[in-house]
């Protein structure tokens, strides 16, 4: 029973990371109807920037300063990617978009190794690795959950209560109509990309103390993020967050009690395929009806 509680709680903590990535994926999916396959690599690269800001060989900033600076840089970077790379091909077929996402994936992955080399690096945590509740959860994992919840609250408030949030929702839901009432849709898309990149950066900085910092650290994590987004519903940000937490817990349960830690990624694969086949709308998503 102790093992069960421990696994559930720590699943909740990793689920927080998956929820962040799932949210980032859904934000971009809603804006441009595409999956950002490079989301994980963008987050990984942001985490390297944070590492450089903090490391003694780099700038040696304190954690929270580096945290904020990294989020700002990621925001600008994400918006720049949308403006420079994706805006010119917004009308191109699906294949072109997938290829560009994969290109970004490949470039960020090797650029990180190129600039910061491939050896795994330790990433600091401001929360420490001491147990928070003995035998159940460490203080870093509590910090992960807390930071995620605060961030999700802020994002919710941003979309729900600010004029820019409203404009962004309008631009995602109905670009033409939004443009007619004076919303600058292109600008909103760039903002959405910036936000998604920032959310990913937070996820990266939170998970790096657990996984160590390597260019490949986000590969598996992104898969769970996708699984979370698919389970929760690709059209629902709230669903994505719930899905992320669920996938985190499910991963730990399956890994500990059913298939063993070696098949955890296969669980994500099966989960994605089964949900897409059986209930493509996910838990909270809208059923998309297409006219033929």
């Amino acid at each position: 029973m102790d093992l069960f509680i421990e696994q559930t709680v720590s699943g909740l903590a990793t689920g927080a990371i998956y929820a962040c990535l799932a949210l980032a994926v859904v934000m971009i999916y809603q804006a441009i109807d595409h999956f950002n396959f490079a989301q994980g690599e963008m987050a990984m690269f942001s985490t390297y920037i944070a590492w450089y800001l903090m490391d003694d060989a780099g700038l040696g900033l304190p954690f929270w300063v580096a945290f904020v600076v990294c989020i700002v840089i990621s925001f600008i970077g994400g918006a720049a990617i949308e403006r420079i790379v994706f805006a010119p091909i917004s009308d191109a077929p699906v294949l072109s978009h997938i290829i560009v996402f994969i290109a970004l994936f490949s470039m960020f992955n090797s650029l990180a190794g190129f600039l910061f080399d491939f050896t795994p690096k330790n990433f600091e945590t401001p929360f420490g690795h001491t147990p928070f509740i003995e035998g159940v959860i460490s203080s870093h994992r509590v910090g992960m959950i807390a930071v995620t919840l605060v961030m999700l609250g802020m994002i919710y408030a941003f979309f729900r209560f600010t004029p820019i949030g409203l404009a962004m929702r309008a631009a995602a839901a109905a670009p033409e109509s939004a443009r007619l009432v004076g919303v600058r849709v292109g600008f909103m898309l760039a903002l959405g990309w910036g936000l998604a990149a920032s959310v990913g950066a937070v996820a990266g900085m939170l998970i790096a103390p657990i996984t160590f910092l390597t260019p490949d650290m986000m590969l598996g994590t992104l898969l769970y993020g996708f699984a979370g987004a698919v389970v929760g519903g690709l059209t629902s940000p709230l669903g994505a967050v719930i899905g992320g937490f669920m996938v985190g817990i499910l991963e730990n349960w399956m890994g500990t009690f059913v298939v063993g830690s070696q098949l955890k990624l296969t669980v994500a694969l099966v989960l994605i395929i089964v949900v897409l086949l059986v209930k493509p709308a996910g838990l909270l998503g809208r059923v998309v009806v297409k006219r033929v």
Binding site: A103, L104, F105, S106, M107, N109, S110, L111, A112, G113, F114, L115, F118
Partner: peptide
């Protein structure tokens, strides 16, 4: 790291 960059 160059190979992936050039591919991209």
């Amino acid at each position: 790291g160059l190979t992936g960059l050039i591919y991209g």
